[in-house]
Design a protein around this nucleic acid. Structure first.
Length: 560
RNA sequence: GUCCCCGUAGCUCAGCAGGACAGAGCAACGGCCUUCUAAGCCGUGGGUCGGGGGUUCGAAUCCCUCCGGGGACGCCA
């Protein structure tokens, strides 16, 4: 529960009580109360909150909306509420509610008390898993992985603040067809570098990173692998390369501010026979059939457009089969909510994955797949093609090096996951106003500076009980207070909608209101009581900016 | 052909579990630094919310259709 929520609930109750009283007195006729809303109007003159119940009730009550609204308002006015200043009927029948500011002046004490946990909901006792990035350990992390990392991690942070027990997981695709191709590539490079004239596999990993890896293998093992049996040679090459790649992914993401709770290896599913198990289970349930020597899952039974192969004619399971086993494992671990962050190129996979979950007897509603549209990388207006194979793209570690972690994370999360993201490296590198992260960080640094100045002047902010927040009467002060008060509600909306961009938007707005306040009013060298109240306003604004930036994984610098 | 995302100001995008005159940043123009950081603030101009139809008291938001851009439709992952 948060301040804004409490107000909402209070007002909803006030209105429902009034409507019911009207019905009892025969002033209104209706069977069931429609699902009405109490919202913050765009226009300030329309009050602090507005309610649309009268329009919704009009048909059933056989009465003009304005007439209904007036009836309700008259009933509300028979009771006097401390928080409500006045209520009006406006427009087609809106009930506009004007509050006095008393509730706002409770906000500073609340934020002051909670500090770095301001915005957090109480624990819900619900476990949610967020799986994201899960890049193939066969190449460098690209821009799609970077966006997935920023979105996934921010979403996980939001869910944590919203009261969920969150687990972050990375699924390591260290088995399957791609790994075979990867091993072919390693082996070919190894032999080539040892003087063998071999053609490189047509679909192999041609990137320079593979060559570099093999060079390191050579400096460690020399020509030893030439004498090994092919199977042993391939295993040696692959084990080394996988360890190196996973380590690289781990370190790069860590450097991006992304830390996982679980690194889940696909290989362990194969080794433990989990894939055969799940295939057998589906077979027993009659959800599979054989055709052209392959085994097909009947996705169409669950609303998919076509069936999907899970066992190839060569007897090997497909990626989908492994993924079913993986998701079975997730659900067996007892999560209440499972979220996957996937690139939009996987959208065809969504319906059958949900179908498989249902086939396994779990509730597909508990699985949410957040699809994010792909990133287009530009350099000075020219598109940079992202090819993991050729290795000619910019990798995440290079991106962090070039534009910095803060700007990169903010940029990736600012846009709705539904939108294509054009990322121009030249633009991001400029570190000017085009990068909104500086706008927010600058607000934070400015507040820190005020407190430094205060210290120099020997001014100390007293405890909350010695401060009178009601001295904050200026438009800019009230706007800032309201925005700070909104924070917990903003988090819960962002969690519900799985919309990390909302937090970026929120903190931009908050910083904007601060800058506006800063340019209109002074904090220091005021009447002492006012100075104290404004110091408190700065104090809680700073906390709220910091808590927001923490969610985004962006630093809050005290000086800029 | 089927499916997914997008189409809002010159540019990049918010808003979209329907709500009252459509928002921000950048760009353009004009102001604001002898007192807390001008990476800032204030103001001005700029939009048939891709087109058409429908549902509704009310549609940028929901539904249908068409157009335009991107993506997915492998016994790849």
């Amino acid at each position: 529960m948060n301040p804004v929520q409490e107000l909402h609930n209070f007002l909803k109750k006030v209105i429902i009580d009034a409507i019911e009283a009207c019905r009892e007195e025969g002033l209104l006729n209706y069977q069931q109360l429609p699902d009405f809303v109490i919202e913050v109007p765009r226009e300030k003159g329309h009050g602090d909150f507005a309610c649309n119940i009268a329009m919704l009730l009009a048909r059933e009550a056989r009465m003009a909306p304005r007439k209904i609204a007036e009836t309700i308002v008259n009933m509300i006015n028979t009771v006097s509420y401390d928080q409500i200043e006045k209520i009006e009927v406006a427009g087609p029948g809106f009930i506009n509610i004007f509050l006095n500011d008393s509730w706002l002046y409770d906000i500073p004490a609340l934020v002051y008390k909670l500090g770095d946990i301001y915005g957090y909901n109480s624990r819900l006792g619900q476990r949610v898993q967020v799986e994201f990035v899960s890049a193939n350990p066969t190449g460098n992390l690209h821009m799609g992985n970077a966006r997935g990392g920023a979105i996934g991690d921010t979403l996980a942070n939001i869910l944590d603040r919203a009261g969920y027990d969150v687990q972050r997981e990375f699924y390591i695709n260290d088995a399957g067809n791609q790994i075979e191709i990867f091993t072919d590539s390693l082996e070919t490079r190894y032999l080539q570098l040892n003087g063998y004239d071999l053609p490189f596999p047509e679909n192999g990993y041609a990137g320079q990173d593979v060559v570099d890896t093999v060079k390191r293998i050579i400096s460690r093992y020399g020509k030893q692998l030439l004498d090994m049996a092919p199977e042993q040679r391939r295993k040696t090459l692959l084990d080394y390369a996988l360890e190196e790649k996973v380590d690289y992914i781990h370190k790069t993401l860590e450097n991006f501010g992304v830390n996982y709770d679980v690194w889940f290896s696909e290989k362990t599913l194969h080794e433990a026979g989990k894939i055969d198990q799940v295939v057998n289970y589906l077979r027993e349930k009659g959800y599979v059939y054989e055709e052209e020597n392959a085994l097909w899952f009947k996705s169409t039974l669950f609303g998919d457009e076509k069936d999907e192969v899970i066992m190839r004619a060569n007897g090997l399971p497909t990626y989908f089969a492994a993924d079913i086993a993986y998701h079975k494992d997730k659900f067996e671990r007892g999560f209440d909510w499972v979220i996957n962050v996937w690139g939009a190129d996987h959208h065809g996979h969504v319906a059958r994955m949900k179908g498989a979950i249902e086939a396994l007897g779990y509730d597909p509603v508990k699985l949410d797949i957040l699809l994010m549209q792909l990133v287009r990388l530009y350099r000075g207006g020219n598109i940079v093609r992202m090819s993991k194979r050729t290795g000619t793209t910019v990798s995440l570690d290079e991106l962090i090096e070039e534009v910095g972690r803060d700007a990169a994370r903010f940029f990736f999360v600012m846009r709705s996951p539904d939108s294509h993201l054009d990322f121009d490296l030249e633009l991001a590198k400029q570190q000017n106003q085009e990068n909104p992260v500086y706008y927010v960080q600058y607000a934070y640094a400015r507040i820190c500076s005020i407190f430094r100045q205060a210290e120099v002047a020997g001014v100390r902010m007293p405890g909350i009980t010695e401060i009178d927040p009601s001295l904050l009467q200026e438009e800019e002060e009230l706007a800032l207070l309201r925005k700070v008060a909104d924070f917990p509600e903003e988090i819960s909306v962002a969690a519900r909608a799985m919309a990390p961009q909302r937090i970026a938007r929120y903190v931009l707005d908050l910083a904007g209101l601060f800058h506006s306040f800063y340019n209109h009013h002074r904090v220091l060298y005021q009447d002492q009581a006012l100075q104290n109240a404004r110091l408190m306003l700065m104090y809680i604004t700073r906390i709220t900016i910091k808590n927001s930036l923490d969610i985004l994984g962006v630093n809050s610098p005290e000086r800029m």
